Simulated scan of single mutants.
Amino acid sequence: MISKLSQIHEQANLGQDVTVEPFTTIHKNVEVGTGTWIGSNVTIYPGARIGKNCKIFPGAVIAAIPQDLKFQGEDSLVEIGDNTTIRECVTINRGTLDKKTTRIGNNCLLMAYVHIAHDCIIHNQVIIANSVQVAGHVTIDDWAFVGGSSAIHQFVKIGMHSMISGGSLVRKDVPPFTKAAREPLSYAGVNSLGLRRRGFSGDTISQIQEVYRYLFLNSLNNSRALEEIEINLPATKERDEIVNFIRSSERGVMKGYIQ
């Protein structure tokens, strides 16, 4: 299962049934979980922690040092969860002193030519389409989808179950359950189709839509909209997820609906 044409450091720790194709290089201080397949011409640098049953396609570079001038060679990691697929020529950089870790969750799909910079936290079931460029310190929550050729500014947060249109410039936070499109990036409705596919009921989706009417369609500023939501709408897990996301936003959230 390990090609004789690959180079694997004696201090790398590979689990059972790992496949390594020809011309791949795995450095020391690397851990690879059981059942993972690593294609040809992959480079995995020190500090990589790769989970079980992952697939890493040719040309990927995992755990290279950050492209950050403040980086001083400190020890840091890239952690990749189980059952995650990393397609051709994806690059994932190690963390810096900020978090010391760049983390990709379970069951994610990073399509070809995606770049994940230092200290990003990508949660579970996330899909990032071809050629998306993710700057440092970005957080992407569960089940989010980022369309191809988008660029995400550093420190941005993208909420769970959101969907970002291809080619977007993401400069502000994207709240959960939404669709984001246009330039500048703005609210394009609730991600109803994605939510139905994941088992959300019609009533729950309607409740989410009502929350966003207050936030993006009623000409209220965010502070006033959040007050009205908490007064007028029943407390639900989804309502509170949205409210807490907006309140904790440091960069501010994307614009409301633009015709």
Rank of each mutant, 00 (worst) to 15 (best):
K255L: 14
S168H: 08
A63N: 09
A117H: 07
Q72H: 14
L14G: 01
F155E: 11
D141G: 00
K172V: 13
E250Q: 15
I208D: 10
T19E: 11
N83K: 11
R247M: 05
E79P: 00
K100Q: 08
T139F: 00
V146S: 04
R197H: 12
K28A: 15
R87H: 03
H137F: 07
N107W: 01
S149F: 14
W143K: 09
S76M: 08
Q259F: 01
V170I: 15
S192M: 10
G148E: 07
T34R: 10
L109H: 01
Q7H: 03
Q154K: 13
I38P: 05
I26Y: 00
K55M: 11
R251C: 09
Y212F: 15
E31P: 04
L97E: 15
S76Q: 03
F155H: 14
N53W: 06
Q72E: 15
N106D: 13
G35R: 07
L193C: 02
Q207N: 15
L77Q: 06
E10H: 06
I127M: 14
Q207R: 14
R198I: 08
F23M: 10
Q133F: 04
F245P: 03
T102V: 10
D173C: 03
S6P: 07
V190M: 02
Q133D: 06
G148I: 12
T25Y: 05
H118S: 14
N232I: 05
E227Q: 15
I62H: 10
H153Y: 05
S6Q: 03
A180W: 02
Q7T: 09
K157N: 08
I127A: 11
M254G: 12
F57T: 05
C120T: 09
G47H: 06
P58L: 09
S249M: 13
G15W: 03
D173R: 08
K179A: 01
S201Q: 09
S168P: 02
V78G: 13
V32N: 12
V30L: 04
I65H: 02
P175W: 08
G199E: 01
K28E: 15
D141P: 00
N222E: 05
Y45L: 15
E228N: 10
G167T: 05
I8C: 01
I2L: 13
A60H: 05
S192D: 12
E228M: 15
E88R: 09
H137S: 02
F216A: 10
C120D: 11
V18D: 04
V32H: 10
K172W: 14
E230F: 02
L185V: 12
T43H: 15
T96A: 12
V243G: 11
V61C: 14
E21Q: 13
